[in-house]
């Protein structure tokens, strides 16, 4: 007699627990063949495939799970991880942020790890942009060097032409050398200017205190404000409240429902991270 879908899923879970991801993946696939309407089968297979680094397949499973159950936090979370692995940080950020919102409303204990995934996506998005910027600057540099050199070539050509008309003036080689020297100086100045701009960009790497969470000492992703006006990152403060329902500074009673989103600070943090992705690791 054929096994029921649920039993196959259970077998998959046993394999997964034992670290046999490809075994788990096969059982989940069989479960899906029996019943393709259960979102959990797809998210379970997505997680197994995530471990096997089959990222394209993870995406397909997650999209199917989301289709079956639109507020599936796990599906968005795995989707984000796969998109990040495939180097699509903007899409990954969108998926992870959706997972984060769902984790907050569903009071999931994975809030903190999903928040970390969001920050990671932000960092990767910045890195990608930085890489493009550097490439652009590098190309501009090459282009400008090329222009300077061609300019020098032209000047030398003219000099030689003039020399032939004047029947071989003695100063020609000296003047040519001067032109070449001037061109070299220009390239050096250009490199200097570009180098300085890069150095300045790297030197000013400090996160302003108002964006720093007083518990983790890291940049805040989702700042919330307490009754006394101090802001914390939501994920960490929830962690603290699970242990002690008190305000970290005043020790007055504080519960989850007292937390107010600090939208202005969140916008400031978003903007800062957009320009300074390195701040995630600061």
């Amino acid at each position: 007699m054929a096994m029921k879908a649920d039993e196959l899923k259970q077998k998959g879970n046993v394999c997964f627990q034992a670290g046999d991801f490809s075994g788990a993946e096969k059982f989940y696939t069989q479960a899906i063949i029996r019943d393709s309407t259960n979102a959990a089968f797809f998210t379970n297979r997505a997680l197994a495939r995530l471990k096997m680094e089959m990222f394209e397949d993870v995406i397909n499973d997650c999209l199917k799970a989301i289709e079956l159950s639109p507020s599936n936090m796990k599906a968005y979370s795995y989707l984000g991880q796969a998109q990040l692995a495939l180097n699509h940080p903007s899409e990954a950020l969108h998926s992870s942020m959706t997972a984060y919102e769902l984790a907050i409303t569903q009071r999931s204990p994975s809030v903190a790890s999903i928040a970390a995934a969001c920050l990671d996506a932000k960092k990767k998005r910045w890195e990608q942009r930085e890489e493009k910027r550097r490439e652009r600057e590098c190309q501009l540099m090459l282009k400008m060097t090329d222009i300077i050199e061609r300019d020098a070539d032209r000047a030398v050509d003219e000099l030689l032409k003039k020399g032939r008309m004047n029947n071989g003036n003695i100063n020609i080689s000296e003047q040519e050398e001067e032109i070449r020297h001037e061109a070299k100086e220009r390239v050096r100045t250009l490199e200097d200017v570009f180098g300085k701009a890069e150095a300045v960009r790297c030197a000013r790497r400090e996160v302003p205190d108002y964006l720093i969470d007083n518990i983790t000492f890291s940049i805040m992703l989702d700042p919330v404000i307490t009754k006394n006006g101090h802001s914390y990152d939501r994920a960490t403060l929830l962690d603290h409240l699970r242990r002690s329902q008190t305000d970290p500074l005043t020790r007055e009673p504080l519960s989850e429902k007292d937390l107010i989103p600090n939208y202005a600070l969140k916008a400031a943090s978003d903007l800062f991270l957009k320009e300074n992705g390195w701040a995630v690791d600061w």
């Binding site: 007083n214 518990i215 960490t236 603290h240 002690s244 008190t246 970290p248 500074l249 020790r251």
Partner: peptide
């Protein structure tokens, strides 16, 4: 570890 400690 009761309410005495605070993560700040």
């Amino acid at each position: 570890s009761g309410n005495g400690w605070s993560p700040v």
